[in-house]
Nucleic acid binder design. Structure first.
Length: 369
DNA sequence: AATTATCTCAACCGCACTCGA
DNA sequence: CTCGAGTGCGGTTGAGATAAT
């Protein structure tokens, strides 16, 4: 049997959209919303299939679409995310405001892929082509680190999808709504009102370099290090909203670093699976004001995350927290913020990932841009 | 100026998934 | 549980634009 193709009906137009078609579609959606795409063309007076209408709307006519040349930052983000997520264009697009998955896919295929290939980098593996034969030589700590990051990002994406599903329940369940509001309230005074789409793990990784310079500690456990398989703490990188793994010692190192530098750094505990060492808890309490600090013993989230990552049992001593890192700024009224030198950190992170791509043993800048 | 090669990107195709009957 | 409609997603195509000869 088989399903008939949606555009096979006689009389339906294919190919480029005319300004008149666009106008009809725009006018209809502005007045009625799109509703059922299949039913839309007839109602809007268009000789097109619903699928074609949907595509035209989502990729071209939607008002919140940014068109034109990709910025350097956007290029960096695409390559970074492609290294983590592969050809999951819709997932990548969620991190690039106002860009469509189709546009990103096209830009990757026509520009970025070629640029990487030209540099002798396999655009699919993001490894130098000399390593593509599977010698195992390129399997550096950094590469393993990258894979570990990808695991986390995948787990986060799954969690996000789960949240979207669960959010539907919230609409009809006031008691759950209240619960969520209470648990998220403490973050409001330190997070930006409109956070950028999260690069979560990437951003946290970029901070690793920042920390490493002063402390020798890294946020991410290093491959081969025992920490890799048993992260002790889950820490959120401000202003991002996801989690990375930190050991107890790394949390302590972060606090040391914060105390001895101009960078504002703190850890806001959201969830704790079991008791933290008293000394560390005290230091955390001193770092952040009490109203920014909450403790719970809820650990279900972590169990879910680790199941998603293929872990059989969640490690002990897990906490969920936010790591607050930023450049200390004084605006003359004594108001200090941790809005941070994000751009500088971005550059640092970008150099790191490009160094990994170009030359795993190198620590110099990138020739890509 | 004409022809050919290459590039770009909007649009299409078909598979996979969700959801409701 | 099965089936079909609706939709989302990633891969691919091809017309038009641009560059090279």
């Amino acid at each position: 049997m088989g399903r008939s193709r949606c555009c096979e009906k006689e009389g339906l137009k294919k190919g480029p959209w005319t300004p008149e078609d666009d106008q009809k579609l725009l006018a209809y959606i502005e007045e009625h919303g799109h509703g059922s795409w299949r039913a839309l063309p007839a109602r809007a007076g268009l000789q097109r299939c619903g699928k074609s209408c949907r595509l035209r709307w989502t990729n071209y006519l939607r008002p919140d679409i940014k068109r034109g040349k990709f910025s350097l930052q956007e290029e960096k983000t695409i390559i970074q995310l492609h290294a983590l997520l592969g050809n999951r264009w819709s997932a990548i697009a969620t991190h690039l405001p106002k860009r469509t998955d189709n546009e990103i896919k096209n830009y990757w295929n026509t520009h970025l892929k070629k640029r990487l290939t030209k540099m002798g980098i396999d655009p699919m593996t993001h490894k130098p082509k000399t390593d593509a034969l599977g010698t195992g030589i390129g399997d550096s700590k950094d590469a393993a680190n990258l894979r570990h990051m990808a695991q986390w990002e995948n787990a986060r994406l799954e969690a996000e999808a789960r949240l979207v599903r669960e959010s539907k329940l919230l609409v009809s369940n006031p008691s759950i709504q209240q619960q969520v509001m209470i648990s998220s309230a403490p973050a409001q005074n330190i997070t930006q009102s409109a956070l950028p789409p999260c690069l979560d793990v990437l951003k946290a990784w970029q901070l690793q370099g920042l920390w490493s310079k002063s402390t020798g500690a890294g946020i991410f456990p290093v491959a081969g290090d025992h920490d890799l398989e048993s992260p002790t703490f889950m820490v959120n990188a401000f202003p991002i909203q996801s989690t990375v793994a930190l050991t107890e010692n790394q949390v302590a190192a972060a606090l040391d670093f914060a105390a001895n530098s101009s960078v504002t750094c703190g850890v806001r505990i959201i969830k704790e699976a079991c008791q933290m060492p008293e000394e560390l808890k005290e230091r955390l309490d001193n770092t952040m004001s009490s109203q920014e600090m909450t403790y719970t013993t809820e650990s279900a989230w972590f169990a879910d995350s680790f199941r998603a990552m293929g872990e059989n049992t969640p490690p002990l001593n897990i906490v969920e927290a936010e790591l607050i890192v930023g450049q200390r700024q004084d605006y003359g009224n004594g108001d200090k913020t941790c809005s941070g030198n994000i751009e500088e950190n971005n550059n640092h992170y970008w150099n790191s990932i490009l160094n990994l791509v170009n030359n795993p043993s190198s620590s110099t800048g990138s020739p890509l841009f």
